[in-house]
């Protein structure tokens, strides 16, 4: 095992431990305790929070911003595919079909371009500029970079750069905004709880 592979594995461990820290803290703090008398079905509401409420037709953040929303979705798909391929690279498992290499290349090219578009928009869009800080740019660059380098690794031998970059991403993830990978699920749960308790979700006839 090379030093850069060891670095990447240690970085991944730091990432997993960091994410577990956040997750365990959330679990320990627990669910809300509400003394009011509920008017809704909590389990249906929480399920709705993760499903119907996330549907693009129900969220203005999606249907009023289709290009940005779509780019975001594709960018996230690219991120998860890259992490999966990282594990494949780590194990040294070869991709069995040449056509799959090209499918992955094409897909990750699209998702990387999405990442670059999102990054560029953040530099120029007045709403995003107002709320952005270096963490936002660093997070995007790390994730977009990993996707680009994954494409590189599919065709070239660039293991040092690839594993070092991936390692940096994994070390950074639990500390910056990328930790939303854990908190997203908790946020949807809490929102479902809040609206479900009151009977607002799932919507009746509205």
């Amino acid at each position: 095992m090379n030093w850069y592979t060891i670095f990447a594995i240690v970085a991944l461990l730091i990432c997993v431990i960091g994410c577990l820290f956040h997750l365990i803290r959330l679990i320990k703090l627990g669910k809300p305790k509400d003394f009011s008398k509920t008017a809704g079905d909590l389990s249906k509401a929480i399920t709705y929070s993760f499903t119907g409420a996330m549907h693009p037709s129900h969220k203005e953040s999606a249907y009023l911003h289709l290009p940005e929303y779509s780019a975001g979705i594709l960018f996230h798909i690219g991120a998860f595919v890259s992490i999966l391929l990282f594990l494949v690279q780590l194990i040294g498992f070869p991709i069995p079909w040449p056509w799959l290499v090209w499918v992955l290349t094409a897909g990750l090219t699209v998702t990387s371009v999405c990442g670059l578009i999102i990054l560029t928009t953040r530099f120029f869009h007045k709403v995003q500029k107002e709320i952005s800080n270096p963490d936002d740019y660093i997070s995007n660059i790390l994730v977009t970079g990993m996707q680009c380098l994954t494409i590189g690794m599919l065709h070239f031998e660039i293991p040092i750069l690839y594993f070092l970059w991936s390692g940096l991403l994994f070390i950074y993830l639990p500390f910056g905004k990328l930790k939303h990978v854990v908190y997203f699920f908790a946020a949807r749960y809490h929102l479902g709880f809040f609206y479900g308790w009151r009977g607002t979700w799932p919507p009746k006839n509205n």
């Binding site: 940005e68 995003q128 709320i131 939303h180 908190y183 908790a186 809490h190």
Partner: peptide, 10 residues
Amino acid sequence: HLNSCVHCGL
């Protein structure tokens, strides 16, 4: 909620 915002601005 303090840790969730991704600054998308949407």
